[in-house]
Design a protein around this nucleic acid. Structure first.
Lengths: 251, 251
DNA sequence: CGGGAGGTTGACCACCATCAACTGCTGTGG
DNA sequence: CCACAGCAGTTGATGGTGGTCAACCTCCCG
């Protein structure tokens, strides 16, 4: 039973960060006809240029959105984790302008856009919550433009880590103190406009300076204030979709 | 009389690209209580971190949105031209996460967010049009992430030019064949993550290769297909907010 | 006529890309 | 159980793209 509604819990938790929804509204969300599917790592969910008829909720695992330059260089423009609505924009823009791809294996819930529009029509506050989510998405893109366009390699990598950790914390996905990064160094490179080799060097640098350390395959953030400072990170651009790790205990 | 309604014409023209609005809906737009103000070049309209209570429509002139890195490096994340709603996101996200500043002198129309919300509540298709505009904004940010993160200097500068020309064409602001760029080379640099010096070199290169030429202070695009090819430009990401210059006559 | 902003050009150099080799995991099949 | 393949990570050597610094030019506009 818990399993059948886990994806609804996730979505409600996310929306609660954006808008206070009453029982009726929560029931409307719970009534959305999600179809759940387990998908393997690297599965392409949506391809640039294709027509999109469903919205996707990530229930388990990690995914990313990316575009390609003519040279073949891939640019990751967003990472997604459990609880994220990954393509709200397709509710109104029918053609995908980028690819959506799983990083790890996971579970995806899809809803017909018609159902999304219906619930938005009947419950304006739900519509507002989804709109806010999309606008915060845009704010994150702006920060990424600054990150790749205006910061040096070490800062870029640190910033990416900070955002990832802060969003994880907000969704309560896992203890932040010790986590395994789901993305490869090459993917971090594709997100920051660096090569995997240079990402590796920057991670080593940050680790040598004491921002985090490796414990087996886990990454342990040993000095959040320091990492945040190096990263030039200020969570304001996440507009409440993430608070910084406050649980100072582990740090 | 034409002057009093010019800003409404502009806005309706923009919205017509996004949604077919009937007479009643157009009348509702025309009824929005815009306050027009002439503003000088470089005027800051909105500052990062401030609370925003109005939405701004650019009626005349050019503006940009930008963020600052800790080092002081400024990153421009968007250029705006007449007809653009510059901060729809602030209708739902009350705190600005970036600055909004005039590039040239111009005219700005402001509407209280309450009035915007009211018209959106009463006319769902208007709400949808504004939402589409915000989503296209996000798509443009994604393209910019790719541009600064994944393309070399020449391509970046050319791409920025292409987007600017295509959007101008869509809004019918001026003949595209000959225009004066409103932004300085330093601003192009801040938008592309390059220095003004290097932007200068890239512009020279593009011009030497015949993509465009200078006539006095005007820039004349002499070979749009070539510029577009060099730029790795595909207008799909503008989702109909801009078609490419088709008037092959001048080229 | 003078001052200032923007544009132009050259010399030099640093950051990060590229190429290449090697290590260590992990899963898989003999 | 081992061998092997394959992917991710690691490290070093070298070079190029684009940054930095500095000088000078051009065009406005007061």
């Amino acid at each position: 039973m818990r399993d059948r509604t886990h994806h609804i819990d996730l979505l409600l938790r996310k929306l609660a960060l954006l808008e206070r929804l009453d029982d009726q509204e929560q029931a409307a969300i719970a009534g959305l006809p999600f179809e759940l599917e387990n998908v393997p790592a690297h599965r392409m969910l949506i391809r640039e240029g294709s027509q999109v008829t469903h919205c996707s909720l990530l229930v388990r695992g990690f995914a990313c959105r990316h575009k390609m330059a003519r040279t073949g260089k891939r640019q990751i423009v967003a990472f997604h984790m459990a609880g994220d609505m990954m393509d709200l924009q397709h509710a109104l823009l029918s053609r995908a302008d980028h690819n959506l791809q799983m990083i790890t294996d996971g579970t995806v819930g899809t809803v017909p856009i018609k159902a999304m529009k219906a619930v938005c029509r009947d419950f304006p506050r739900i519509a507002e919550a989804f709109a806010k989510d999309a606008l915060i998405d845009a704010s994150i893109f702006r920060e990424w433009v600054l990150n790749v366009g205006g910061r040096d390699a070490k800062t870029r990598v640190a910033h990416m880590l900070c955002e990832f950790v802060a969003r994880r914390e907000a969704m309560g996905i896992s203890p932040v103190e010790a986590m395994r990064l789901p993305m490869t160094q090459e993917q971090i490179g594709d997100a920051t406009g660096l090569t995997a080799v240079h990402v590796n060097r920057m991670l080593r640098l940050l680790s040598e300076e004491g921002a985090f350390r490796h414990e087996g395959r886990e990454l342990v953030i040993s000095d959040w204030p320091m990492l945040k400072a190096v990263a030039d990170f200020d969570a304001a651009y996440l507009h409440g979709l993430a608070h910084e790790p406050q649980s100072a205990n582990a740090f």
